[in-house]
Design a binder for these strands. Structure first.
Lengths: 369, 369
DNA sequence: CGGTCGCGTGCAATCGTTTGCACGAGGTAT
DNA sequence: ATACCTCGTGCAAACGATTGCACGCGACCG
């Protein structure tokens, strides 16, 4: 306990000391105290010393809320992710929080659950709370499954509307993991096309010719790029994805398992499965093995994202790694740049993806093809 | 586009309308506008209508920052977790965020990385930002490994100091997943002892007599209870944990794998492994199987936490489930109760754990014991 | 018909901090 | 000696909202 210790300030217990209290004790004006605390302007060393003493004695801490109010800067950013319990988003949130902390920003975490209504509600309170900026992750994606009637609140939001609202409030904003094309907004993306292509190349290179595909819940950005790249890679090698070998999963392990069982049940022939995220890949592996198939001997499986667990399972998962750390860092940097220079031209950063070959892929069984 | 649309307010572009603007346009006083906006006091329906019109036209949105400043209530809580990229904490954060949202609170996410310095820094800014309350998760745990000299900043913080500082600022605070005993603070815990005991019971019941243990990085709460319960269960059945069969892991998959390899290398005999979290269990399974052992035929493996991936792997992991949703909800409820009634007696909620038997455990090989 | 009540409204202070402006003292250049 | 800076400081006005108090007015009671 060498710290100045929670002191007996001039006010009642629990009441924090304010600039006024310090000023009174140091025998100077409030402005002077403010100046030594912020250190902005020069003040006489003797005075400063007195003030610092008073600050220490009273245990004064600036009220950042008041400061933010006055300066119109909160040093807080809002982070909107679909679901923090998804490891990919959790890691991304972590990376963003890290980068933000390094720059002196706090981050408010919001889970949109892919619900347009919830997302809108969050954006409203974040704006009202005067965050300095917003980071939207996979904004606008929505469960494809739920074939509800076209209820307005739950319709697929494409992210553009959100961005427009935020811009109208002239609050800086960057969109991650969602290609908004020419929409005037800063974006950081990942080369999903390349990722898909790498997988196609890898599997075909191993000798696979019948490859099933478990795509994500949405037809928007990330999925679209992955399919496109994958298809292209196959096409370049004279192959194609059979329509019946392409199924949709909900993004979670159960979805992957269900999709795999579905393929099996429908008698679709395949020697490899490309799942659009690692959770579905894990689920698929489980379903396949419970059906008596070995991985990779009978079926190869590839995932996407390279979440930490991908390397922890057995067999360790071959997957496409996204540079999560860098994505987060880039997002934060873009946002802070935008805050600093509101009129700079829009930036669009595309980070590379990388194939990580582990144990879940291998050559197809010899009796095939 | 049926929404009131980003309007031409009386001020320059990007400037949000304020109460004054609305008041001017509606021809009433600022106070009146405030009253209709907050809806606290009765105001004449005709006047209210005029005001609401003006609000709509100007697209007025209350400045929550100013409101918080004036009312001394931010509707924001700080959440301090060791690492959001750990699925358990990610899920917990998610649950807390959910519960908070339902009650109209935003949550600021902070990753302490188990560093006392970082944790202190975070607490300072959260307090300075006038959060209404704090939730500390596994506060004070610290990497046990790093056998550094007793540097002050990095020493094991036991959580008590943090709590004391927060109390000194008289900011409500609840501690999750860390037993602070009689420390005057609200706590929500899980019955780790029971969890450990259930595992012991299950494994011994299957016929295992030599069980290895991969404990967590810390000797504090969660780990301690788990060992204790486990030991007790074994003792009740006339067994014990051999000292050489107890190794420490870092909590991550690699740590679990390393620990398993270590056991193997040292020739320790065991037919089952109890890892103190699911990540280490997954890592251990990988290491075991790469060493040619089958799970569960040759070695049974049990984890702890029941993260989503536990059921997604093959073999699906037998593990101890914590009611994460409820932990988060209880934490938030405790915090809000404390905010509402600062002088209520301290609460301590202990939630049950539950064994989830899946595929990674089975009877020991017949040639054993 | 006078007094009282309650309702709707406005005035103005306040929350804690920042900051433009002015002022006085002291120093330097002319 | 006058004019002109510079430096350190204080005054007071913001920032946007909330809220205690008071006032005016109609209604109601006796």
């Amino acid at each position: 306990m060498t710290k100045p210790s929670p002191p007996a300030n001039g006010r009642g217990e629990g009441q924090r000391a304010t600039l006024r209290d310090v000023a009174a004790r140091a025998g100077v004006s409030v402005s002077t105290v403010s100046r030594v605390v912020t250190g902005a302007v020069a003040v006489d060393p003797t005075t400063a010393e007195k003030v610092r003493d008073a600050v220490a004695v009273l245990g004064y801490t600036p009220n950042l809320l008041a400061r933010s109010f006055r300066r119109r800067v909160t040093h807080t950013i809002g982070l909107l992710v679909p679901d923090n319990s998804n490891p990919f988003f959790a890691e991304l949130a972590r990376a963003i929080e890290d980068a933000g902390f390094a720059e002196g920003y706090s981050v408010v975490l919001c889970n949109s659950d892919l619900s347009a209504a919830k997302q809108a509600a969050y954006i409203d309170v974040l704006l009202a709370k005067q965050v300095d900026g917003l980071i939207l992750v996979s904004s606008g994606l929505i469960q494809h499954a739920a074939g509800q009637a076209d209820g307005d609140a739950n319709r697929q939001a494409d992210g553009q509307a959100e961005v427009a609202r935020i811009r109208a409030a002239s609050v800086p904003c960057v969109v991650i993991d969602r290609d908004l094309g020419e929409t005037p907004v800063d974006q950081v993306l990942v080369d999903n096309r390349l990722g898909g292509a790498l997988v196609g190349e890898h599997l075909v290179g191993l000798g696979h010719r019948r490859i099933a595909c478990i795509v994500g819940p949405s037809d928007l950005t990330p999925s679209a790029g992955r399919v496109a790249g994958f298809r292209q890679a196959l096409a370049d090698r004279g192959l194609a994805v059979a329509p019946e070998a392409l199924v949709r999963g909900d993004g979670r392990p159960e979805g992957g398992g269900g999709a795999a069982r579905d393929l099996l049940a429908r008698g679709v022939a395949f020697t490899a499965v490309f799942a659009f995220n690692d959770q579905m890949a894990a689920g698929a592996i489980g379903a396949l093995r419970r059906a008596g198939l070995r991985v990779p001997e009978d079926v190869s499986v590839v995932g996407f994202d390279d979440i930490p667990h991908a390397s922890a399972t057995y067999p360790a998962l071959t997957t496409v790694a996204q540079p999560i750390e860098e994505i987060g860092a880039a997002g934060v940097r873009l946002l802070l740049d935008r805050i600093a220079w509101p009129d700079a031209p829009w930036a669009r950063i595309e980070l590379p993806t990388r194939l990580v070959v582990r144990e879940s892929t291998g050559p197809p069984p010899v009796d095939d093809g």
